[in-house]
Each structure stands twice: as structure tokens, then as C-alpha cells.
């Protein structure tokens, strides 16, 4: 399989995925993932002429929940799990850009 052809911009995609990569990781993942992408090229050989994805099942109205109050978590549980909290809120670094 021609693995040269299939390449992704690992740096860009990792940014989309919110994962910081070292140059070393970038290089390693690049070659490993290019191999995988090259392998999945096999899907191009499948003749998909007539194939349409069917809905195996669909939810009917009575599988929806009624608008009734359920059990919420206590405020303390949310705060205890948060790595940083203040004023009853989860604390995050200052958000600048909207």
C-alpha cells in the first residue's frame, strides 16, 4: 500500500482535539496514523452503489421522558469533584475571546 499518499496534519488535528503534543509525539503519531489511514484506504474498493444507511431503530414518542423533576446532585458533590472552585462555581482561567 502506498503509505506516502495518506497523511494528515497531526499538529492541526491535535489542536482541534485540544491535545498539546511534543515534536517527538507529533512525529511518532504522524507515522503511526499515516499507516492506519493507508490501511483504511481499503474501503475505497467496496462497491457502495446501492447501499444506504438504514435506521436500525428509531425512538418512538413514548420512549421520551416526561417533563418531571429527577434527582439532581448536591452542590457539594459538584464542588468536591471540581479541581478548582470558588463562589459556588467551577473556576477556570479567565475567558477572553467569546
Amino acid at each position: 500500500m502506498e503509505s506516502e499518499k495518506h497523511t494528515m496534519d497531526v499538529g492541526y488535528v491535535a489542536k482541534l482535539a485540544a491535545i498539546e503534543l511534543t515534536d517527538q509525539e507529533k512525529e511518532l503519531f504522524q507515522s503511526q496514523l499515516d499507516q492506519v489511514l493507508s490501511y483504511v484506504e481499503q474501503l475505497n474498493e467496496v462497491n457502495l452503489g446501492e447501499v444506504e444507511v438504514r435506521n436500525e431503530s428509531a425512538a418512538s414518542h413514548d420512549q421520551l421522558r416526561s417533563d418531571d423533576e429527577g434527582i439532581s446532585l448536591s452542590h457539594e458533590v459538584i464542588m468536591a469533584n471540581a479541581p478548582s472552585a470558588s463562589s459556588g462555581c467551577v473556576r477556570v482561567p479567565k475567558i477572553i475571546d467569546q
Partner: peptide
């Protein structure tokens, strides 16, 4: 790293996530 689990802080949320 926002609501639970470990967090490595960053200057802004994007840096924190990454």
C-alpha cells in the same frame, strides 16, 4: 480538567485543556 479529575493549569481555558 474543568469539572473533575486532574488539571494542569494554563493561561486561558484552551491552554488548560491542551
Amino acid at each position: 480538567g474543568i469539572r473533575y479529575g486532574m488539571r494542569v493549569d494554563g493561561a486561558d481555558p484552551a491552554a488548560l485543556y491542551a
